[in-house]
Write a protein that binds this DNA or RNA. Structure first.
Lengths: 342, 342
DNA sequence: AGATTTCATGGAACCGGTTCCATGCCTGCC
DNA sequence: GGCAGGCATGGAACCGGTTCCATGAAATCT
């Protein structure tokens, strides 16, 4: 409703002066500034960033592209991004881009090209060369979460190391018959998360002198996905592993539910470890390698805004820590226990 | 980068003509339009809605306020809102406003007042009189999901009826000792969902001639919340109900987990029914009263855009249907079964 | 054929801010 | 005392679109 011209008129100054007083740039006397601020408050004036963006090029808004909203990791990242941006006065505009979204091209060619954003944060979206090119043409800072993009600052965890640590935890307990249930490399856009976790698993197994062939089963990254896979993998008693490394906590929950349903005791007969640090892990007593999505979100915002302030396009990438949280879904395999007890 | 003036120059026409050709408003000859469109494509021109919004007042952007992102219902609503808005060319800017958010006032007084949105969708946010007033002052259409706001179109389900139906399902199976586990009215902003579901429960119980005092237990609206409450409520065998009506599927999952842990068989010894239609319900074989958050999101967008087109501020409210999905978490109580078998 | 419409286009104003530039005052310094 | 420089302010241009208005040509009507 009210424009800066109204504020200026009410305060008895020129538009230019009102603008300087409110934005804090340029010379304004203390009294004038007070007058202008009082006038602005009186008529409930809030500046339109759209109008300002025309001349400054700054929109006070950031675009976020993300493949899922409901899955835990993404929900957490989103909440932390929103909060961090809000604190800095930025709006967050959200584009949900699931793997095979028909809207994908339109988002890159139309929505993101509308000069609406000061920067873009891409959360675990596997970008094609062409899409990266599109984004770079916007000449805006770009930060990735969860995986590398060419020429872009990235906030991530070391998925290979995390998977390796998780697997080594099982190995150190004495397990030799270990299976990895993780994301498929073909079905979903995986942003290298799936394959990195598989590589970490294989590295740990190989280092322990164990074979890896036939030890991987794919699953949707969800609890029902893990459950379905669990029923299949654990259904045959003769070929049952003593431990499973799940690529995510949500998969692990499903595996535990399947095991319970099949009457397999966890951890006595089956150890399960996940990756994430999901809040439900406590309830399932799940041993997990916790990552910290909120930290990743906050750091991504800091990196983006730093790039914005400095004008440099590429900020510093960061690899965030993970931590092993041992609960009671993992233990030594029964066989060994028996031996130990003798 | 490129502005409409560049397009006009390249096409050899005036800015005004280029604008008309691209927007499709006003008279332009077919050949001229083709020329302009070709020129625009050639230099990769995408109009800046920010610039356009200055004169048209339309921003092609909608603000959404929502208390949670991770909880299932909200995630689903969000995904459907984003998709529906995207299809219509609108951006979705997200404000996450958990119950006791310290950012709350700033969002209403600053962020939402920036003239950035053509309309606002409020998802299950309990608004104070003052906040409603603030929103109305923006003179923009406003649509609520999940509960009534004064003078605003609302998309919702009938929570009282849904709770009543769920309870009646248990009653019709022969249960008499039924407990309701739902949200607290004090702890969280509840948008009347909690109290409405409690009212529906009490209405059904009273109609069946059963007492309601002592039959309600509060819980966080999450699986761990239901789990904790389940351990407490089901822990004492002497005071154990034969059936529980959970206010959400996520609570119900927790209750089922707690029951399993206590060695209580579902549904033989305990029936559980929820509300939601959560995708995990299949895995838990949970009987539930399904609502359809995606329908609610789509309808909210349709209502908002209709209000936008017509210029009328208040659209039509709608009450969406729910459907009872019977799985095997509910059955007749054991006692009756025994009788029936005789 | 002359008078209206309808169509097509260009020029210019405008939306709401920011910023450049010019102006004038006051202070400090040589 | 005159001049340079810092401070405070106003006028005007500008950002990138849309739209009003004027103009002229072609089509339609009387």
């Amino acid at each position: 409703m009210s424009a800066i011209a109204d504020v200026a008129r009410l305060a008895g100054v020129a538009k230019a002066t009102a603008s300087r007083a409110l934005s804090g740039r340029g010379y304004v006397s203390i009294e004038t500034r007070a007058k202008v601020i009082a006038a602005a408050r009186q008529i409930g004036y809030v500046a339109s960033p759209n109008a300002a963006s025309l001349v400054t090029g700054r929109t006070q808004s950031v675009g976020v592209i993300i493949p899922y909203i409901s899955r835990w990791f993404f929900g957490e990242v989103l909440e932390s991004l929103e909060l961090a941006l809000l604190e800095q006065g930025y709006d967050m505009t959200l584009y949900n881009l699931p793997p095979a979204s028909p809207e994908r091209d339109r988002v890159f060619e139309f929505f993101l090209a509308r000069k609406r954003f000061d920067g873009i944060i891409s959360v675990c979206v596997e970008l094609s060369e062409q899409e990266v090119e599109h984004l770079h043409q916007l000449r805006r800072p770009l930060v990735g979460i969860g995986g590398p993009i060419r020429g872009v600052a990235t906030i991530e965890i070391d998925d290979v190391a995390a998977a390796r640590l998780a697997t080594e935890h099982l190995l150190s307990l004495g397990h030799r018959d270990i299976v990895h249930v993780g994301g498929s490399q073909v079905d979903e856009m995986d942003f290298q998360v799936h394959s990195n976790r598989l590589r970490g698993f294989e590295a740990a197994m190989t280092a322990a002198g164990l074979p890896v062939s036939g030890c991987f089963y794919s699953s949707e990254f969800t609890t029902p996905g893990g459950y379905a896979r669990g029923l299949a993998v654990l259904g045959d008693p003769r070929r049952r592993p003593t431990a499973i490394f799940a690529a995510s906590d949500e998969i692990a929950f499903g595996l535990i539910l399947a095991a319970r349903e099949l009457g397999i005791r966890v951890p006595t007969e089956l150890s399960v470890i996940g990756i994430d640090g999901h809040p439900h892990a406590e309830m399932f007593r799940l041993t997990t390698l916790a990552q910290h999505p909120r930290m990743q979100g906050e750091l991504a915002v800091r990196t983006l805004l730093a790039g914005l302030a400095s004008g440099s396009s590429v900020g510093a990438s960061a690899v965030l820590p993970t931590s092993l949280i041992i609960r009671s879904s993992t233990s030594a395999p029964r066989m060994l226990r028996g031996l130990g007890a003798q």
